[in-house]
């Protein structure tokens, strides 16, 4: 019988039907090479499972939720709007209004401002050692999580 190929992986993962599994098992009983391959596959799978979880930064979810739906729809500009925009550009040139280079339009979370403030406040020599770090690192992230949960705070 030819050696097993992807049936071995399926066998390892338990996705074969009982008949198929029985067929694989009986081949394995007689074939040392396939047994070796199965052991290798199991080792590879264990190595992969041993990789520690890489956790996202706690602020990533709230930041993501804050941006969702808030950014302007970039790709969906209906034709009439583009025409109107074109007219506006023409008008701008006519009035010689200088188009400024694009300002930073990301809407920062208010939390960012508070957090930065805490970082600067921490430089004051009288700030409490533990409080300064608390306000600038721990507190904003926890509040950020709460802010994303309430419907009023987008």
């Amino acid at each position: 019988m030819p050696h097993l190929t992807d049936q071995l992986s399926a066998y390892l993962d338990g996705t074969l039907t009982p008949e198929e599994a029985a067929a694989v098992a009986s081949h394995l009983a007689e074939c040392a090479e396939c047994r070796g391959t199965l052991d290798d596959l199991q080792a590879v799978r264990n190595l992969l499972r041993a990789v520690p979880d890489r956790a996202p930064h706690p602020s990533l979810l709230p930041r993501t939720l804050a941006r969702v739906g808030a950014a302007p729809h970039r790709k969906v500009a209906p034709r009439w709007m583009i025409a109107a925009a074109g007219a506006a550009v023409g008008l701008a040139l006519l009035l010689q209004v200088r188009l400024l280079p694009t300002p930073h339009t990301d809407r920062a979370a208010g939390i960012w401002y508070f957090q930065q403030h805490a970082v600067f406040a921490a430089a004051h020599p009288m700030t409490d050692v533990a409080l300064a770090s608390y306000l600038s690192s721990v507190l904003p992230y926890e509040v950020l999580r709460e802010w994303s949960a309430t419907p009023q705070n987008p």
Partner: peptide, 9 residues
């Protein structure tokens, strides 16, 4: 999946 696992091996 099988081929990927063999490559990783």
């Amino acid at each position: 999946l099988h081929r990927a696992r063999l490559a990783l091996r």
